[in-house]
């Protein structure tokens, strides 16, 4: 099904249909991850792939136009290159150990250490979170900063247009009371659910990235059913920008504090008297930082795209 979807995505010219099929594609991918028992990855794919990236792509379409141009050159040469690369990659996988076999290098090296020591050292039930936020703290910090850098890029390239009054010639839309009432009722639950995902990340699937995306999705739903102006009133871009920077600061600050207390950077064990408690605090703070940054970055990018699209 994945292959079929990908083929159709390539064949279609209307970029709208393509965006929708992308969302189906990521739903399929997420189902695949579910079958492989990678719950956290499926969670992220659901929230990011199907949710936010669809909206951001739509926002891009509003700026650029929604018909794909015919390619000017013949597709034969790229096809050959792609087929060759794919063949080489497949050939490379032949050398890898069989899928799921216990003597893969991954399972010899770090995985047993994580699995054996994580309950003792970090002491939270969801191992993925402990690996993500504690053992691989540097990586996650890098990811957060990448997200933040993307925001800086978008803002410096496009910027958020100040909302001007609509020109009077614009056609009046029909009232959408049902949609608005439904959204109004739903949004609190979405935000609450985002917080649940944020703080439940220690115990079940979830964490900062997913929670941030869900939170942003709630605000975006508000912007869609009412108007961008209302959403900007609710969450003003100025404040959200500060929150985005604050999230990164929180992450880095946790690292600095642990350095000041005598550990290494991002070594949370020194944050409290008991190392396990220290790990808990550290992970909580770091995840909070990630969540804040991701949520506000997604909102700001959405604002930037849509305000740009509406201004034209």
């Amino acid at each position: 099904m994945l292959g079929l979807t990908a083929m159709t995505i390539i064949r279609l010219r209307s970029l709208f249909a393509v965006v929708m099929l992308f969302s189906i594609y990521s739903l399929l991918t997420a189902s695949l991850f579910m079958v492989l028992d990678a719950v956290d990855v499926a969670f992220t794919e659901a929230a990011v792939g199907a949710g936010i990236s669809t909206m951001l792509m739509l926002g891009t379409l509003m700026i650029t136009g929604y018909r794909e141009k015919r390619p000017a050159h013949s597709p034969i040469l790229p096809l050959i290159v792609v087929v060759l690369t794919g063949a080489v990659l497949v050939w490379g996988t032949l050398d890898m150990p069989h899928f799921g076999s216990p003597d893969q290098p991954v399972h010899q090296h770090v995985a047993p250490r994580y699995i054996d020591d994580s309950p003792k050292e970090v002491g939270i039930p969801n191992m993925v979170t402990s690996v993500l936020a504690s053992y691989r703290g540097y990586d996650t910090m890098g990811e957060t900063i990448v997200v933040f850098a993307a925001l800086i890029g978008v803002l410096s390239l496009i910027g958020i247009k100040k909302y001007t009054n609509k020109e009077p010639g614009r056609t009046e839309k029909p009232p959408e009371s049902i949609l608005q009432v439904a959204a109004k009722l739903l949004i609190p639950f979405i935000l609450l659910f985002a917080l649940y995902v944020q703080f439940h990340g220690d115990f079940g699937p979830g964490g900062g990235f997913q929670a941030g995306v869900i939170f942003a999705a709630g605000i975006i739903l508000y912007a869609l059913t009412f108007s961008l102006k209302d959403a900007m009133h609710l969450a003003p871009p100025k404040v959200v920008k500060v929150i985005a920077a604050f999230g990164v600061l929180l992450y880095g600050g946790t690292g600095i504090v642990s350095m000041l207390k005598g550990g290494t950077f991002l070594n949370y064990s020194v944050l409290a008297h008991d190392p396990i408690h220290g790990q808990h605090y550290g992970i909580l703070l770091v995840e909070l930082g990630v969540g804040l940054t991701v949520a506000s970055v997604m909102m700001l990018i959405f604002y930037a795209f849509v305000s740009r699209g509406e201004a034209d």
Binding site: P174, L179, A182, L186
Partner: peptide, 19 residues
């Protein structure tokens, strides 16, 4: 959630198409 969102989505869809 399903009961709540799915009819609303259908409604919005039909309304948009009709409009």
């Amino acid at each position: 959630f399903l009961w709540y969102t799915s009819p609303v989505a259908s409604h919005a869809l039909v309304k948009a198409a009709h409009y």
